Simulated scan of single mutants.
Amino acid sequence: MRADLRVLHYSMATEKAYVRWIKRFMSHVGSTELEQFGQKDIESFLTKLAVEGQVATSTQTQARSALLFLYECILGVRIGFLNAVRVKRPETMPVWYSRQEIGYLLENLTGVHRIMFLLMYGSGLRHKECRRLRIKDVWFDEGRLLVRDGKGQKDRMTFLPKEVVPDLQRQIAWATQRHHQDLEEGYDKVYLPFALARKYPNAGREIGWRWVFPSRQRARDRRSGIVWRHHIAEQQFANALSTAQRAAGITKNGVPHSLRHSFATHLVEDGTDLPTVQKLMGHRDIETTMNYVHVDVGINSRVRSPADRLGGADQLE
């Protein structure tokens, strides 16, 4: 299953998750001989996740996808409609930051985390897209960023905020030093997706293919076994943002993706049309873009809270 996932270009995170679900399913049925189990057992497992585990909708969906991949793609067993208890998707409101809160957060971020913050908020990058940004895709002269292999394996162009340019240039200079150090010490490889490693065997020696935000230490890749310098880890910026929120006194439960919501919302507030925002964010459907825009929450400015009429407040108009 791991081999097929890699041939089909599934991410490392998806591979780990699918394997983890298969192991949990083995524990559920009490056997590793999964050929003898089928649709009813999958339904029982998914129902247990919903009823006893009380997992989120996305968690149950991921477990379902992993099992379907195993049975249909690996074992060659056709699975029909799964009659399992489904987790109801809650209608939650995502978190985004006001412009003032963006300023407060920026005051409490320094170094590489400040640069990443400005790119995610100022360019609409996803957290993963920011971490995986390569030096060759930063176009300073044009003021553009080329986002490669985004969600859905799509490329797109977005703008490069002028505010981040000086710090980003210094960051790339630091990354270049790490690159030369790696070459001197015999580490001339860099991760390339799909068949690019065969197409560009010497890419690791070229600075353009290196990460804008490289890790400070080299590590052995779990898939290839090659020792190289990967990009910055996921938790580094997430932890820095959480710390900045506490320091700024912001009680919202914001996450790195909240910056992408803020990017879309503030663009529309400034008068940018939705099709342009859609293009900058790399969405296929404009309905998806609208889920990121939180300008009008359905409260008319002329509608007032009854509490504001207490004590003669309605006489102030």
Rank of each mutant, 00 (worst) to 15 (best):
Y18W: 12
E35W: 04
E33Q: 15
R126V: 04
H283L: 00
W96S: 13
C130T: 06
Q236E: 13
G208L: 06
H283V: 03
E163K: 15
H261A: 12
A307I: 13
A219F: 06
P94Y: 04
D141W: 05
T61Y: 01
N253D: 07
A248H: 15
R114M: 07
E142S: 14
N83K: 15
R131P: 02
H113A: 10
R2T: 10
R144Y: 06
A195P: 04
R198H: 12
L34Y: 03
D4Y: 12
G111L: 07
M26A: 13
Y104P: 05
E101Y: 06
V51Y: 03
H9N: 15
L8G: 08
P161T: 12
F194Y: 14
F117V: 05
G225N: 01
T251G: 07
V277T: 05
L82R: 04
A3H: 12
N300D: 12
N291D: 11
D182N: 07
M12I: 10
R134K: 13
F37G: 03
L118H: 02
C73P: 02
R6L: 15
V164Q: 05
I172A: 08
R218F: 00
K40Y: 12
Q62S: 02
V165M: 12
L70Y: 03
T288K: 04
T288M: 15
W209E: 14
I286T: 11
D285C: 08
A84V: 07
K252S: 11
F194E: 14
P201K: 11
Q54L: 01
F25M: 03
T289Q: 06
L46K: 08
T289A: 09
I42N: 08
K16Q: 11
K279W: 04
G38Q: 14
R284D: 06
M93S: 09
A203L: 09
A50C: 04
L8D: 12
R246W: 04
E52I: 06
F194P: 08
R198C: 04
V295C: 00
L109S: 03
L118A: 00
